[in-house]
Design a protein around this nucleic acid. Structure first.
Lengths: 143, 143
DNA sequence: AATAAAAGTTAGCTGAGCCTAACTTGATTA
DNA sequence: TAATCAAGTTAGGCTCAGCTAACTTTTATT
């Protein structure tokens, strides 16, 4: 067969989907629930766009959504959300260790986090540990 | 004023625009010219899509395009193209030094290259030099 | 020079993901 | 409890960047 592994699944979570799930997980972890209005504010998009996407994420089995009532992540959705969150945290740690400005870090991480595959995540984790373990290395980075 | 620096410019080169310019530069550097059919093959999209985009890039001042005749990059286009090419090369070198498989490197670089800003480029260059200079460090990365 | 093949273009369509405006639902409070 | 206001939803529209099918132009072959 042409398609990989699971025959009836969502179309390999796009950048937008990952951004939504990441934000939703963060809201749930911090406030206990995720409202449309907060997701919209967090992603700096309109509430209408959020409603739309949330309906699609429900259809795709990434969350359970009840009109006007609220939403919860499904295990599948939480897996994606945790994965992107981990990549976000890792890249933030890594770039920060290189001495980059927090604003640059945030901006670049937001772009990069959607594009690193598991082996690369592991390799950067390894490198990050090394840089932490041996602060002297960091001193050699200037210029 | 609200918009930055130059009032009448292209909309801050999207991922797609960067992909086109990168491919065009590579074709010009290797064969001396860039044909629609080769750009299409390189990016794995239809010739029609290339024609469309090339017209837009002309409008945006990133290349000079003459129907049926061919195209050349403008200085502005070449600047963008060289910048993305540099980022591509740098990320490829960097991830390869971490011991990642060539296919993974290629895939991830293609995603990441559009999202690293100049300070991050410089920081990763610095780190890459360090890893090259001290091969023993690389040995400590496994696990 | 005629014709066949390759390259390039146009027209029209699609889907993702955003928007605004107008409407509905639910929560708050007078 | 009724009115108000915040939150949520729907409808319709836009841009970007891709597609196919049909057509035109250029190049190559005979």
């Amino acid at each position: 067969m042409k398609c990989s592994a699971n025959s009836r699944s969502a179309p390999a979570s796009s950048v937008a989907v990952e951004d939504y799930l990441e934000r939703i997980l963060e809201l749930i972890d911090s406030k206990g629930y995720a409202r449309v209005v907060d997701i919209a504010a967090g992603l700096k998009i309109s509430q209408a766009s959020v409603t739309n996407m949330v309906q699609r994420l429900d259809t795709d089995g990434l969350l359970k959504y009840e009109k006007y009532r609220g939403l919860v992540l499904t295990p599948a959705g939480e897996t994606v959300a945790r994965s992107i969150t981990r990549r976000h945290q890792l890249l933030t740690d890594f770039l920060s260790l290189l001495g980059l400005d927090a604003r640059v870090v945030e901006h670049d991480v937001e772009g990069m986090e959607h594009h690193i595959s598991p082996p690369t995540v592991r390799a950067i984790e390894s490198l990050t540990r090394l840089l932490r373990r041996r602060p002297a290395l960091r001193a050699q980075l200037t210029k």
